[in-house]
Design a protein around this nucleic acid. Structure first.
Lengths: 230, 230
DNA sequence: CCAATATCGATAATTAGGTATCGATAAAGC
DNA sequence: GCTTTATCGATACCTAATTATCGATATTGG
């Protein structure tokens, strides 16, 4: 075990919550509010106030007692922490259904990820543009990635080719992969993979739903709240 | 004060890993293997062996020393735990780019979620079918959900209408919402929301990538990994 | 058949993340 | 101007999750 990015001063769960705070803050700002307390944020987001306070302190902002935090600087602080003020350029690989949906999903650019081109191996797609972004031949990826200093790739290819394509991207110097393919990638040191695991999500969903249904069925007994549906 | 499903005997991180195990196990099985050790699983998935063993024991399987676990029963156990052998019926709301991508994403059914219909309010879409699934008028959702005993909804609508549509779904008895809309939902007790937060994912990705790049710059002289160290 | 060994599984220790407590502070109201 | 009150922020505490330890066990190889 050599240098693993151990410098995570900020816990990942906190990083995950930052965009949630940001969304809320932007909304509040657009409503004309100028400051907000951790308590209020917590209420709106179903979190504990103390957790919000701790997170915000990790972002390096200070609040004022009785008032809370100034929204504008807070937004700025969070955006710069996340690097959203200067979105990272990214390539998308696999311009299928999911891929083109992501290409057309504008908010991503405001959220730190600027997909500037797509790659595919389907000759019918190559040369087209989707959401004003060109679809290029997959073979061109490594050289282009180097030339344009792109270090992030979004992988929306079938599982069967995911590994091969990921290797190609890494050859081009890609060191961050957002993997939507339902497969485990075998990756070497120095490359980070975030697996967007729909199956894990659906697992959580179904497990929780069946728990809720079970509770609902065996309910009436220990329903701790006023029941709504007869 | 919030929804805290404390009856979770199985930790959620474990539940999240189950599908990952399952994917690997299916792959191994297709290669003709009959058993596998926790050690091997851990290696392939970049996890600690002991963690795998603990997870599997929570799934209720027993292994044999020196051999490991029989793959077939393990698959069965995990699938039944996750409810994947009997997929939950679900409605999808919002047949836009992302929505139709999900409708066409076949693996979901094997992963416990069977989307049987879509809903939208666009008259041009209503009446069409996407991936053999009908697109219906959103107004029909509540009554249909009740009649067909659908308790799960996939939300792929713009943020601006997400709350309103979620309320409608809940009126229909929906108690599990997979929310792809980039907004916080205000939900009452007894309803579970899993927020598929692309912005949180992209946050993690960009933060990790910039960390990697920073490490890369401050360490190596030049870019290429093809240069062999003496 | 016996020794060597890889693995399991129970218990214990550790770590990370989240929560509670409480004094300090500054705005609002009297 | 003084009291009240909501909130911050530092410290301490707690819980959940992961990792370590170690004896037990069964298969493999000699």
């Amino acid at each position: 075990m050599q240098q693993k990015p151990q410098r995570t001063v900020t816990p990942l769960p906190t990083v995950r919550r930052f965009p949630v705070y940001l969304r809320l803050l932007l909304q509040l700002k657009s409503q004309g509010r100028e400051d907000v307390s951790a308590t209020t944020i917590a209420q709106k987001l179903n979190l504990e106030a103390i957790l919000v306070r701790k997170d915000l302190s990790l972002a390096g902002v200070v609040g004022r007692p009785r008032i809370g935090f100034e929204i504008a600087p807070l937004i700025e602080k969070l955006e710069s922490f996340l690097g959203w003020s200067d979105p990272a350029k990214a390539f998308l690989i696999g311009a299928g259904h999911l891929g083109s949906a992501l290409l057309q999903y504008e908010p991503l650019r405001q959220q730190g990820l600027d997909i500037i081109a797509a790659f595919d191996r389907d000759p019918n797609l190559i040369g087209e543009t989707i959401a004003n972004k060109p679809v290029l031949a997959i073979e061109k990826l490594p050289s282009l990635a180097r030339r344009m200093h792109v270090h992030t790739a979004v992988l929306t290819v079938p599982a069967s080719v995911a590994q091969e394509v990921a290797d190609l991207a890494i050859d081009g110097g890609i060191c961050g992969i957002w993997n939507f393919a339902p497969t485990q990638l075998d990756i070497r040191e120095g490359v980070f993979v975030h697996h967007e695991d729909l199956s894990a999500s659906s697992a959580i969903l179904t497990v929780q739903v069946s728990k809720l249904l079970h509770a609902r069925n065996s309910s009436a007994a220990d329903s701790n709240e006023t029941t709504e549906e007869p």
